[in-house]
Structures are given as structure tokens and as C-alpha cells.
Design a protein around this nucleic acid. Structure first.
Ligand SMILES: [Zn+2]
Ligand SMILES: [Zn+2]
Length: 728
DNA sequence: AGCACGCCGACT
DNA sequence: GTCGGCGTGCTC
């Protein structure tokens, strides 16, 4: 039995609940429901916000169970077809309920089941018909008359409101009567760039190539070393995009979206409306910026991965800077890759996309080598006479070592400091030492809730687990044998800092890691100190590797580099190469050649030969050959099912059930479930099942078979699906 | 997910 | 006796 109602229709709505199906509601026709509109509906005992995905005049659903919508808040433009298509793609490809994908796409304020009330937009009031207005006023209404006379000129709201507390009410009435007009301040249609740097021949060619494709989809890999001027290429292609009256979407890694980057864009386009979109904004700022983009007012959206879903009616191009960066992959909920989503979106909208990197992800490199992406190489350093750094390997085998530092390293550091230059010691381990141990019985401080060692934090006098947050006081003796002589093993940033204080008593040492930059703004303050020369010997973790340029920094020392070399993850070397090249890029910007010392216990490992060549293209080609021969991504499609439970056997059993369902899916291979690399984390036992196929489609199809099993409630086992996992 | 309902253990 | 534990069902 289908139902038909007069002046009423049915809408199906996607909701932010972990359920794949849509829900149908009746809706009065005068609400004018449209696809993509936000809607507030009753859901059991509560109220939720959702997105309308279809509108129909009848329904196949049980008439008696259909409830009416509460409201269509009309507080955002309905989501356009390309955003809906991208959301459907993500729901399908990453195996996530569409309603939850749409919730990820919307700013928090627009996920709430109440209308968002925007502050009044900036603008001016002016009388359109002053005579009629004045005649309508009673002769004794002097305040109203004063207000009306002011409106002979365009006036901002603040000045008018000062006339009378009722000014707002009168203005509203006069606008309704048609005597007064409100004109919103709109941005320039075409904001002009100022201070564009002269592009060198390579940059000019790149700009011409990208801009030549402005009318259709094309993906470019802009491959250029640090200092080769990728940003200038972005800025000039964006200028061309804006000149056509279009909007530009720029995605950058979380850590790179700094006030400095924003300032650089604003300096180039002073009359443009540039909005930032990242998780550091308040809900209010975020929704306002999002709405500005979706109304087509913002010219440039500068955002992190979440910005890939921003509706932009006049989208003209997309840039993904540092496209290899891991922060483009969300690691919870909808585990999407914003880089892949951006390529999908560019294709959907038929606009060019530029992926920029000095060390492209092998997936991207492969696409470029296959000709799917156009490779543009910037070989030369665009910045005044800068040279690539000189990388040297310091073999640690049987060497004289002081607190993890080789004698040769110390000598070179001393020279640089004496020459008035800055030195960065890079060590990717925070804390004092990665573990505390007993020399008598071999006891190691371990976390009770994780398969991990407790890191010694001497400053705070605590042992701390970096995986679950567990903390305890440093024991005074070995808990197993009572031996008093327990010592820290290995180096962390705090220990290096302490050692350097003894070794270089005159140096101004500054440690920068997550432990002392938690407070908002503290990182910016420390970076300022470094730029101002208030510190000359820096100790830092990977947060120092990215994007900050210090002209006086000429020597980078890398300690404990080897970790990525023997990683269980096949991406270990790729990541390590990218990281080392990135940190090497910190050395030597101002005309002099930088120097990079890498201390390693495996100096004859072939990896270091490839690194010394500083030829990422050759390294990437070699890695691709290896991946091809081993049938690893990008020559295979991977999905990882991660299950965790208090009892490991339950997690494993659940994965075995999934495996059985997937077993006869065409074109799909699996290994048996295995314990996760970190088998125990925060008191949960973790197992994983790897699902593989030659191409994406059989994999995505196979995974649909288990969607319901993952959706079903399971109190004992928590299981999540990670398509294209970046960590195994 | 979140929220109601319902049925058993140890509390004022 | 009832307060609250969480297993189960349901949401158009
Ligand atoms: Zn002991
Ligand atoms: Zn732990």
C-alpha cells in the first residue's frame, strides 16, 4: 500500500547514526524540501538533524509509522550535487554510513538539531525612498526622524543603533515597508594579487601548464625539493583561478596551517576573502567560514583534510600541499584520505588539482609514472642561491659515544656554534629515555595496559606510557629484585637536552617537543625565539622537521635514525626517506650550504646510499619496483579489519567469522587474523585481518558483505574497517 | 549511537 | 522492599 498526501510529500533523510539505511518522514509541501537541505526530525524519543537525500510524492514505507519533519532550518545552502556525490563515494569506498559521512562533512554547528542563527552580516543601510519614509512618521517622533535623516547616506548598523534602543525595530519595519535597503558588504568579484615574485623558467612553465587546464579535470604532481618554490606556483595559479571569478581550495597538513601561511596568502591577495578551516577553530568560526565558502563569498579556502568537503559553488581549482603527509588520512570514524577525496572531487567538478611534494607518496608517484597524473618537476632552488644540503653518515658502530652523540658529531657541532650558526639536534623520541631498566635482573619498566615500555620523564619525575597515558612515579629500586641501580636506557629529547647543557655550557639550548608545546601558542613563541636568535642549539622531534625556516640554521644532526629501517610496516623506508629529507631541508637556506649529519648503526644499509644521492625520484622508482615484485600497494588494494576486545580470543574469533564470510568473495585474498603489532593497548587485546585484492573494486565489493556484521551491536568486540590503511 | 525497557544482585 | 547494573530492541 502506497500513500499519497495532498500538499505533502515524503523525504528520505540521512542521519548521524551508525545505520546504513535512510529514514522517511512526511513534510508539508510549503516547507519546499529539496535534496541536500538540512532537516530537523524526530527520532524515537529524541530530535536529530539530517540531510534530505530524496523527495517523493509517495512512500512505500508503512504509512502509520511515518512522522512529520520538525523543520527545515534553511540556515545553509542545500548541499550541492558534488558534495553529495563525494559523500556517497566515501560512504561506499570506506564502508561508512552515509549519514555519518555527511555529519563529518558538516561543521559541528550544523549537526545540531536546532537552526543556526548567524550574526548579522556586515553591510550598510540606506533609504531608498526618504520622502515616503519621512511622511509616514508622526511629527512628534523625533528620534525616528533623526534616524530616517541619517539614512540619506549609507550607514553601518552600529551608528544607527546609537540613536535609540528601538532603532533595530524601526529599521526592520522600514525595510519591510520598502523605504530602506540593507546592502550586504560583498567581497570583490576579482581580488587582485599584489607583490607576486618573478617566477623562474621552471615555475613559469608549471604555472602555464596548470592554468592551461583550467577548464577541465587534470591532476598534476608538482614535485620539487624544499626551496624550489612550489608555493609561488600555487599562488600564481590561484591568482589566475580567481581572475576567472572562481574559488580555490587549498589543503595543507595540520601542522603547516600556521598563522604565517595564512598571512602569506593574505599578503598576496589583500582584497580576497580567505577563510581557514581546521579543527583549531571554535564551532562558531568554523561554521561562519564554511558558510562563507558555500555561499560562494570566500575566494580561497585554506584548510586541513576536513575542508575537502566544503561546498564551493564556483570551485576553480584544488591544491593539496605536502600531499604525502599522513595527516591527510583520518585515523578514526570515517577513515578517508583527503588527498584521494580531493582528486575525486576535482574530477567530479572538472577542475584541475595540484598535488605538491618534495617526497610524493608512492601511490601518487605511481600515478604520475603511469601518466594518470601529469608530473611537473621543479629542479632548481628558486630561493636566492640556496644549495641542497650536504648529507653525511656518521657510523656509530664501535664508536666513542657521549650520551648518544658521536665525537665527530660533537666536533662539527662545536665548529658551527662557534661560527655563530644555529644547530638542530633531531631525535624522534620525547621524554628523557625510552625505558628504565635494571642492570642486575634485566627488568624493564612496562605498561600494564599496553605492550609498550614506560618512557622516563625525568623533569616530571614520572614513568609515562605514550600509548594510553598511564603514569607512575619513578621507582627507587627494581620492583623485581630490589636492586637500587636502575638506569635509563637510550636517549630522548630531555636527556639530549641535559647532555648538551653539560657539553655546550655556553650555548642557548631550546628543546621543542610535544611535552613543552601543549599550551596553545607556545610552539609559535618558541619558533619566534629561534628566528630571533634567542636560542642557537635546538633539540626537537618531528614537529621541528616540518616547514619552519630558520635562516641561521646550518647544521642538522639526526640521532637514532634507524627506527624506520626495520619497521614491520612496508612503508617504513618511504616514510623515513621523506622525514630525513624534510629535516635535512631545515639546514642551509641563506646562501650557505647546509650540513646534515645522520648517526646510524647501519651505515652500509642500502637505504643510506639512496639517501646520500638525494634523488627521491630514483628512490621512489626503486621502491615501486620492490612493491611491484611483492604485490604491495600501490600494486594491490588493501583493507585492514581491526578488532579489539578485553579477551583476545573474542577479537580473533570475530575476525575469523568475517574471514569466513569473505573467503569466497571473487578476487580477494586474506591472511589469517594476526595479533596487532602492539597487541595490547589501553587494556584491550588487538587483532587484525588483512584483506587484499589486485584492484580496488573487488575489495570494495567484498567488504559490502560484512557491512551488516560491523554495523550490528557487539558489546564484547569493537571492530573497525580501514580501507587503504597507512599504518599496519 | 542513544535512549527506553526489563529483569536480577546488594543496599538504605 | 527498591536502586541500578547492563543485555536487548528500536528508531521512519
Ligand atoms: Zn632487578
Ligand atoms: Zn599504556
Amino acid at each position: 500500500m502506497t500513500g499519497v498526501l495532498k500538499n505533502c510529500c515524503y523525504v528520505s533523510v540521512a542521519l548521524d547514526v551508525p545505520l546504513t539505511r535512510l529514514f522517511e518522514y512526511s513534510c508539508p509541501a510549503e516547507y519546499a524540501p529539496v535534496i541536500g537541505a538540512r532537516v530537523i526530525i524526530p527520532f524515537g524519543p529524541r530530535r536529530l538533524a539530517g540531510v534530505i537525500l530524496s523527495v517523493a510524492t509517495e512512500t512505500a514505507f508503512d504509512q502509520t509509522k511515518i512522522r512529520p519533519v520538525v523543520a527545515l532550518p534553511d540556515d545553509m545552502p542545500p548541499l550541492a550535487e558534488d558534495v553529495l556525490a563525494l559523500s556517497r563515494f566515501c560512504a561506499d569506498y570506506y564502508g561508512h554510513p552515509l549519514g555519518q559521512v555527511l555529519a563529518t562533512a558538516l561543521p559541528v554547528a550544523l549537526r545540531q538539531p536546532k537552526a543556526f542563527v548567524p550574526p548579522e552580516p556586515g553591510g550598510v543601510y540606506q533609504a531608498g525612498n526618504l520622502d515616503a519614509l519621512l511622511q509616514s512618521l508622526s511629527p512628534r517622533a523625533t528620534a525616528q526622524k533623526q534616524l530616517a535623516l541619517m539614512l540619506a547616506q549609507p550607514m553601518a548598523r552600529a551608528e544607527l543603533a546609537a540613536v535609540s534602543p528601538s532603532a533595530n525595530k524601526w529599521l526592520k519595519n522600514w525595510i519591510e515597508a520598502g523605504w530602506v535597503f540593507f546592502t550586504e558588504t560583498l567581497p570583490d568579484a576579482i581580488p587582485l594579487p599584489v607583490g607576486a615574485a618573478g617566477a623562474n623558467a621552471e615555475q613559469a612553465a608549471a604555472i602555464a601548464l596548470i592554468d592551461g587546464q583550467h577548464a577541465s579535470f587534470a591532476a598534476f604532481l608538482l614535485f620539487g625539493i624544499t626551496g624550489s618554490g612550489k608555493t609561488e606556483v600555487y599562488l600564481q595559479t590561484i591568482a589566475a583561478c580567481l581572475a576567472r571569478g572562481k574559488q580555490a581550495l587549498v589543503l595543507v597538513p595540520e601542522i603547516n596551517l600556521t598563522p604565517q601561511l595564512e598571512a602569506r596568502f593574505r599578503a598576496r591577495f589583500p582584497s580576497a576573502r580567505i577563510v581557514a578551516l581546521h579543527s583549531g577553530l571554535s564551532d562558531k568560526e568554523r561554521v561562519l567560514n564554511w558558510l562563507s565558502a558555500s555561499r560562494g563569498e570566500a575566494h580561497i579556502v585554506l584548510g586541513t583534510r576536513l575542508a575537502v568537503f566544503t561546498p564551493m559553488p564556483r570551485l576553480g581549482m584544488i591544491v593539496v600541499d605536502e600531499e604525502h603527509d599522513a595527516s591527510f588520512k583520518q585515523q578514526e570514524g570515517l577513515r578517508y584520505s583527503a588527498r584521494d577525496a580531493a582528486v575525486y572531487r576535482a574530477h567530479q567538478r572538472q577542475v584541475p588539482i595540484v598535488l605538491g611534494s618534495a617526497t610524493p607518496a608512492l601511490e601518487t608517484w605511481h600515478n604520475a609514472r603511469q601518466g594518470r597524473y601529469r608530473l611537473i618537476t621543479l629542479q632548481h632552488r628558486a630561493v636566492g642561491g640556496a644549495m641542497p644540503p650536504q648529507i653525511e653518515i656518521i657510523p656509530m658502530h664501535r664508536a666513542k659515544v657521549v650520551e648518544g652523540l658521536h665525537q665527530a658529531t660533537l666536533n662539527i657541532m662545536r665548529e658551527h656554534l662557534a661560527g655563530g650558526q644555529q644547530v638542530l639536534v633531531f631525535i624522534n623520541r620525547r621524554g628523557y629515555a625510552p625505558v628504565l631498566s635494571c642492570g642486575e635482573c634485566g627488568w624493564l619498566g612496562e605498561c600494564k595496559r599496553c605492550s609498550a615500555k614506560l618512557v622516563l620523564h625525568l623533569n616530571e619525575r614520572r614513568l609515562r606510557c605514550h600509548h594510553c597515558g598511564y603514569e607512575e612515579v619513578i621507582p627507587s629500586a627494581c620492583p623485581d629484585c630490589g636492586n637500587q641501580d636502575i638506569r635509563p636506557l637510550g636517549q630522548g629529547t630531555q636527556r639530549i637536552e641535559a647532555a648538551l647543557e653539560t657539553l655546550f655550557p655556553d650555548a642557548k639550548i631550546l628543546r621543542i617537543d610535544r611535552d613543552n608545546t601543549r599550551r596553545k601558542g607556545s610552539l609559535q613563541e618558541m619558533l619566534r625565539q629561534v628566528s630571533a636568535g634567542e636560542a642557537n642549539l635546538l633539540v626537537g622531534t618531528q614537529m621541528m622537521a616540518k616547514g619552519h625556516d630558520f635562516p641561521a640554521l646550518n647544521l642538522v644532526v639526526v640521532l637514532n635514525a634507524d627506527a624506520g629501517l626495520f619497521s614491520v610496516d612496508f612503508r617504513g623506508e618511504e616514510r623515513m626517506y621523506a622525514q630525513l629529507l624534510q629535516v635535512a631541508g631545515r639546514a642551509g637556506r641563506a646562501g650557505t650550504q647546509g650540513r646534515v649529519l645522520i648517526q646510524t648503526g647501519y651505515h652500509d644499509h642500502p637505504f643510506y646510499g639512496q639517501l646520500l644521492a638525494q634523488d627521491y625520484a630514483a628512490f621512489a622508482d626503486a621502491q615501486l619496483d620492490e612493491r611491484r615484485s611483492m604485490q604491495l600497494p600501490p600494486f594491490a588494494a588493501y583493507a585492514l579489519l581491526r578488532a579489539e576486545a578485553e579477551e583476545g580470543a573474542l577479537a580473533k574469533a570475530f575476525l575469523l567469522q568475517l574471514q569466513a564470510v569473505l573467503a569466497d568473495a571473487p578476487g580477494v585474498q586474506m591472511f589469517d587474523p594476526i595479533a596487532a603489532t602492539m597487541q595490547r593497548k589501553a587494556g584491550m587485546e588487538r587483532w587484525q585481518l588483512l584483506v587484499m585484492s589486485d584492484t580496488r573494486h573487488p575489495l570494495v565489493n567484498a567488504l559490502k558483505r560484512i557491512a551488516l556484521m560491523l554495523e550490528a551491536r557487539n558489546n564484547k568486540v569493537r571492530c573497525i574497517l580501514d580501507v587503504d590503511p597507512i599504518e599496519m
